[in-house]
Simulated scan of single mutants.
Amino acid sequence: MRVIAALLCIVSQAWTVNANVEKTIFLGPSAVPLPDVRPSLDDLRLHSLSSLEPILSTQLSVQFPSSTGPHGLESWYLLSGLEEGRRYEVRICWPATSPTDFWLDTYSITEVFDTPHLISSLAEYSEQLPGSNSRDSLNKQKLTGDTQSILLLRVQAAASYYSTNRTLMDYPPPVDVDIILDPFLLNLLPCSLAPVAIYITAVAVAAWFVSGYTYRWLLSVVEESSAKAHAD
């Protein structure tokens, strides 16, 4: 147990030094038909995360909390190709050198389109995105005219530092982030943690046998020393 605790401590400390992490956990919803009519999800030009492309490296604009935006700026993404009933985790990782607070929320398409402030936020974000011709590659597979288990992800980002540099306070720089979609194995453990779990299990099993062997060897040495003392 001490070996396992030490390994977990080392892993957590190394992760803390390199980056900060915020996450949300959810279940894949029921698949819904996506009508091939305009405007459609494709017209939103959102970045999409799926099992085929689970990691998105990007920059997020941030602002300091205000009365109109207590959680900073909002960004929207698609989570597509989900499996109904499967547990997923979405993580956002960013450098510890960029103090930022993040909030992650997932919504069904119906929930967003039926909630005025959510659809307004989504439309405002979509209007700020460049046209599809100037983007790298967002949705290589068209979503409309299909039936999928899909969710919309809202990321809220607020700068959380103070500086005497007035320009930095007025115009906080974008934050480099990785947004990761991570499915669970048997709805118990994120897939990305499986190698760590296997490694810790292997080390724990090896430590069990090594400690047993070491104990028996030390016991035999003590008994041998005791026997020699009695013989003398």
Rank of each mutant, 00 (worst) to 15 (best):
2 R>Y: 03
2 R>T: 03
2 R>G: 05
4 I>F: 00
12 S>F: 06
12 S>Q: 04
17 V>P: 01
25 I>A: 08
26 F>K: 04
26 F>E: 08
27 L>D: 12
28 G>N: 07
37 V>L: 15
38 R>F: 10
41 L>F: 11
42 D>K: 05
42 D>Y: 02
43 D>Q: 07
46 L>K: 10
49 L>E: 07
50 S>Q: 05
52 L>W: 11
55 I>S: 13
55 I>T: 15
56 L>P: 14
59 Q>K: 06
59 Q>S: 04
76 W>F: 14
83 E>Y: 02
84 E>R: 11
86 R>T: 03
90 V>K: 11
91 R>A: 15
92 I>P: 03
93 C>V: 13
96 A>F: 06
99 P>T: 01
101 D>H: 13
102 F>I: 12
103 W>E: 05
104 L>Q: 10
110 T>W: 02
112 V>E: 12
113 F>K: 00
113 F>Q: 03
116 P>F: 05
119 I>K: 10
124 E>I: 04
126 S>H: 11
128 Q>I: 00
131 G>F: 13
136 D>F: 14
141 Q>S: 00
142 K>C: 06
145 G>Q: 05
149 S>G: 05
150 I>K: 01
152 L>G: 08
153 L>S: 10
165 N>K: 09
170 D>N: 08
176 D>K: 07
177 V>E: 06
180 I>K: 01
187 N>C: 11
191 C>W: 14
192 S>M: 04
192 S>Y: 03
194 A>I: 13
195 P>H: 04
196 V>M: 04
197 A>D: 00
201 T>A: 07
202 A>L: 07
205 V>R: 01
207 A>Q: 06
219 L>C: 03
224 E>T: 06
226 S>H: 02
229 A>R: 15
230 H>R: 15
232 D>G: 15
